[in-house]
Each structure stands twice: as C-alpha cells, then as structure tokens.
C-alpha cells in the first residue's frame, strides 16, 4: 500500500499536525519508503499466532478504591495541575472558544 499527498494530508489532519504543501510533497516518498519496507511483514505466516499482549508474563494489578492515598496519583492539587498551563484563569484551563 502506498500513500499519496491526499492520504498524507488526511493522516496529518487526523494527527493534528499542520503540514505545508511542500512538506507534504517531501513526506510522501519518505513515508512510502518506510511503508514499503515494513510491509515485508506480510510474508510472515502468522495464521495460528496470537498478537503479543504482555511482553513479559505479568498480570494487571488493581488499585484499591482510596481517594488521594498518594499525592502523586491523587487529586486536590490544582496548583500543580495548572502550574505549567499556557492559559489558566479562575482555576480553569483556557482554550480558544469552542462552538459545539
């Protein structure tokens, strides 16, 4: 499968990365080169193979239902949450107005 500029433009839009026309032009052969190369995986017979889920055998641990047991994973720290915000007002993050 190979991509054209329209496809790359669509992918870039999905990924929310603005690309100029000239960037698009440059990306098409690059991406096609990489895609053609990874497509050699198609030749591997994986008929009875399960996709990998856990690289090292391990089970999913669950956390107890406790609020703010650890400040690193709990809430109640608005200052830390907003500390790096480009725009924060009245305890909120600010973004350009959204019309729904």
């Amino acid at each position: 499968m190979s991509v054209d500029t329209a496809t790359v433009a669509k992918i870039a839009s999905l990924a929310r990365i603005k690309v100029s026309e000239s960037e698009l032009e440059a990306m098409v052969p690059e991406l096609n080169g990489i895609l053609a190369w990874v497509e050699q995986l198609g030749e591997v017979d994986t008929a009875n193979v399960e996709p990998m889920t856990a690289v090292i055998p391990n089970t999913l641990r669950l956390r107890d239902d406790v609020v703010d047991a650890d400040p690193l994973t709990g809430g109640g720290r608005r200052d830390a949450v907003l500390a790096n915000a480009p725009v924060a007002e009245h305890g909120f993050f600010g973004v350009p107005k959204v019309i729904e």
């Binding site: 956390r63 609020v67 047991a69 650890d70 994973t73 709990g74 809430g75 109640g76 608005r78 305890g91």
Partner: peptide
C-alpha cells in the same frame, strides 16, 4: 466509586474546578 478509574482523585459531584484532578 470513591476514586477514579485510573487515578486516586475523588469523583464527588460539584467540586471546585480542577480540584479533583490528579497528574494522571
């Protein structure tokens, strides 16, 4: 539940904005 699905922040209704938000 008391805490969120993947973090320890509280789930109570009507709290101050961003006061029940963990780094996660």
């Amino acid at each position: 539940s008391n805490a969120k699905l993947f973090s320890g922040a509280a789930t109570a209704f009507g709290a101050e904005p961003n006061s029940q938000v963990s780094l996660i």
